[in-house]
Design a binder for these strands. Structure first.
Lengths: 211, 211
DNA sequence: TCGTGTATTTACCAAATGGTCAAAAACAAG
DNA sequence: CTTGTTTTTGACCATTTGGTAAATACACGA
């Protein structure tokens, strides 16, 4: 059966589960949970619907599995922020990595956005268990940098929010951006803009927040 | 019938259409188009399902109507940006207004986000017809301000994107933010942060973009 | 090659859902 | 009250969709 409690998954099982999860990422990210159908996932995966339900207990389980896997990938850049590195460089690198993820993994970004938009019904536990601790830890690191005078004083929490918002925007609102930037040079102006914005924000100098 | 080609709508008709559209905003913004059901909308509106279909031709038409109405509200702040005003003040005021809209009209923000996330299937025409021209016009205004040396030189298009992204983030990702900021002082730190960020970005000074 | 557990398909089902229709209320005007 | 119009409803319908059961095909080690 598929419910092997501890058996090693056969090669064919691994392959099919991967195909299903990849198809599910496609479909869920494009239509949301309720908008996606098992038939669509089945077709995309090149398998029959009952066959898919042979590998997963139901639509819900597929969705949860995809979201769980996504979580790791998604937290990776933030987790990679090095408390020992140069503060400004670390943050600007983080911005850059997030921006690249929007480019290279738009499906993942949209899937995540979809889930949060609906109130994170299935992801809330993950957010509390995985994201929250990491978020708090990174806020503390950034705060320490600021206290040491290595960065301008701003609210670390909203700094992170603004990084997420601006970078993920390019994946999540791509349809809008395509309309607004139609036919314009594909220069990577976004990267340059964001680097400038966050550098200016974080560089301690004459423009710092008034006490 | 409801299909009066030019007749004035009766008072009861106006009232019911409004109830339906408000209920639809609730339901669509919370579950997306496919996730929303006519029964949910009917219940929320306090009407029966057939009665709803007496006022609207179908689910699709309700959705389109809500989106169209939303468009005006949504473009209003950008349209209100005054080319004659003080550049920095104008933009910072715009940021503030957009942030307030995220607070006061989160349903609208999420409905919009949902639609764009799905690739703007029903809104694409509106984007091209209404948003695009306004966007181009405002970009030109901002560019002129920069050329006159009244603002630091950055890409106006990405400036606007970043304003949208950061402000709407507070409505669209509220579920996530609630988890991450749980139990923290409800100070309006977001407003202060964003004002600082965009002021530092746009104030011509030592931290300007390198030529 | 054979047998056994694995994988896949065919044929279904029940619930949900968008939508219809005719008739009943409700209502307005004379 | 009566008549003509607008509004509302109850009873249905067809399709979609998540899911199941049983039968069939397949892989692969003995």
């Amino acid at each position: 059966m598929a419910e092997q409690t501890q058996k090693k998954p056969s090669r064919i099982q691994q392959r099919n589960r991967r195909k299903i999860l990849d198809a599910a990422l496609d479909v869920f990210s494009a239509h949301g949970f309720r908008g996606a159908t098992l038939d669509q996932i089945a077709e995309q995966a090149g398998l029959s619907k009952p066959n898919i339900l042979y590998y997963f207990d139901g639509k819900e389980e597929i969705h949860v599995t995809v979201l769980s896997q996504l979580m790791e990938t998604w937290l990776d850049p933030l987790a990679g922020l090095d408390p020992e590195g140069d503060p400004l460089t670390e943050i600007l690198t983080y911005v850059q990595r997030k921006l690249e993820m929007s480019r290279d993994l738009p499906r993942e970004s949209r899937l995540f956005a979809n889930e949060i938009l609906q109130g994170a019904p299935r992801m809330d536990p993950h957010l509390r268990a995985d994201l929250k601790p990491l978020f708090d830890a990174r806020c503390a690191v950034i705060q320490a940098w600021m206290d040491a005078g290595k960065l301008a004083q701003v609210d670390p929490r909203h700094l992170i929010f603004s990084i997420w918002a601006t970078t993920q925007h390019y994946a999540d609102f791509q349809a809008q951006i395509d309309v607004l930037l139609e036919g314009q040079e594909p220069t990577d102006a976004a990267a340059q803009f964001l680097q400038t914005m966050f550098r200016n924000l974080l560089t301690p100098g004459p423009n710092t927040t008034p006490a």
